[in-house]
């Protein structure tokens, strides 16, 4: 798949699959892993919070570890700010993404 096709496919997926917003904030000892990505060291208990927000019916499911809730109020606030930003990213960019797709699809040279 060419880079441009890849871009169009991603945009199309994003513009049609926006029913849920998944925000995760997780904490632990991190390390550089063999594949070059940053990940958690093995054998530890990960603390954190995960929110699944259904953008159609408004349901919000949040799972949070007790220690995280009690000991890291700053991170809980940070997580809430991420939820707001997640909404913003969608709200701000969805029209732009749709415009890109429509513009390019309407061009005679488009694939």
């Amino acid at each position: 798949m060419s880079k441009l096709d890849d871009i169009f496919a991603k945009i199309e997926k994003a513009t049609t699959d926006l029913t849920t917003l998944k925000i995760q904030t997780v904490m632990g000892d991190l390390e550089l892993q063999n594949d070059g990505h940053i990940g958690f060291k093995k054998g530890q208990t990960i603390q954190g919070v995960i929110s699944n927000i259904d953008l159609i019916d408004g349901d919000i499911k949040t799972q949070i570890t007790e220690e995280f809730y009690k000991n890291y109020p700053e991170l809980v606030q940070f997580h809430q700010a991420r939820e707001v930003k997640g909404h913003e990213i969608i709200a701000n960019n969805i029209d732009t993404l749709k415009t890109i797709i429509e513009t390019i699809k309407n061009l005679p040279q488009s694939k």
Binding site: A14, K22, R82, I90
Partner: peptide, 9 residues
């Protein structure tokens, strides 16, 4: 672009 976010701390 679908708004999902992961934060590793």
């Amino acid at each position: 672009i679908d708004g999902d976010a992961v934060s590793l701390v």
